[in-house]
């Protein structure tokens, strides 16, 4: 009897602890939602609230009809989407070859990716800035897509190669005997089989330009090319013209796609990260 009550108290405490932790953890998220859905007369409020006083979608409407916000949204999509497509294409091709062929220079190539991954992300920033200034291609979509693609290439190649390595070679050998070309094998067999890895890698690559501030700040001086990150940062700093409600609504729009993706794919992502880490 004593043992059973002890167990019950144990469970109560555990639930209590977890509920407490969840509440604390949720506070910032709660605040964003609260502020975004609240209609305010002034830009900021000195009142303390738990639930919105005047629930409304107004802030979202204001954000989505704000021409600048839409422009930032468009730019972020171009940068993030462009980088994902470009980097993923190049990385998949490379990963396939590193996984399936043994050729002179293979080890050197892989090693240079490993070395690159060991360096901080800002290692190339200063010289890149100087070079781009020199070449005068500062505010172009393509140059930034190149920079972000290069930054994520090593991770993508390693991740995909690791996955390709787990697919048995024999399928392709059977296809070769049947007369299929290497490229056909690549596109019709390998890629479909590697879909999970492609999805996870794509999510990672997409995250970088979508949420990056430093690189966009350094390389974009043309306001029409600014990203969501730059735009929202400006809004956050300046509550004299942009209300916090609007900022929060904008933040939610910026964060929502990625949040949903990360929630849905969490097991794979974390699995991929730790396995990759172990493989070194």
């Amino acid at each position: 009897m004593v043992a059973k009550t002890k167990e019950k108290i144990g469970y109560l405490l555990t639930h209590g602890f977890l509920i407490f932790t969840c509440l604390l953890t949720f506070i910032p998220i709660w605040w964003v939602l609260l502020t975004a859905f609240d209609k305010r007369v002034s830009l900021v409020s000195t009142e303390f609230m738990i639930l919105p006083k005047n629930p409304t979608f107004d802030n979202f409407v204001e954000v989505l009809s704000h021409p600048k916000f839409l422009m930032w949204l468009k730019n972020s999509f171009i940068f993030a989407g462009g980088t994902t497509l470009f980097a993923l294409t190049l990385a998949t091709l490379s990963a396939y070859a590193y996984s399936r062929f043994d050729f002179p220079g293979k080890k050197a190539g892989l090693a240079s990716y490993v070395i690159y991954m060991m360096l901080p992300t800002t290692a190339a920033l200063v010289p890149q800035l100087l070079i781009i200034k020199y070449l005068g291609i500062k505010n172009s979509y393509f140059s930034l897509i190149l920079i972000w693609s290069a930054a994520n290439m090593a991770f993508a190649v390693w991740n995909l190669k690791g996955y390709f390595d787990t697919i048995p070679k024999s399928i392709e050998e059977a296809a070769i005997i049947d007369g299929a070309s290497r490229f056909q094998i690549f596109t019709m067999i390998m890629l479909p089989l590697a879909r999970p890895a492609l999805a996870i890698t794509a999510i990672f690559i997409f995250t970088a330009p979508w949420t990056d501030y430093a690189t966009s700040y350094l390389f974009l001086t043309d306001g029409s090319k600014f990203t969501l990150a730059q735009g929202l940062f400006g809004w956050a700093a300046d509550f004299k013209t942009v209300s916090w409600g609007v900022f929060c609504a904008g933040s939610i729009i910026m964060a929502l796609p990625l949040t949903i993706l990360y929630l849905v794919f969490q097991k794979y992502i974390i699995g991929g990260l730790t396995v990759g880490g172990v493989k070194g």
Binding site: L90, A97, F103, A124, M153
Partner: peptide
């Protein structure tokens, strides 16, 4: 392994010119 080089070179070229060369610089 001629074919392999076609597969790996694009990515390497991008990374070398855009990242690794600047790092060395």
């Amino acid at each position: 392994n001629k074919v392999a080089y076609f597969y790996v070179l694009p990515a390497l070229v991008v990374v070398f010119t855009v990242s690794l060369f600047p790092i060395a610089y």
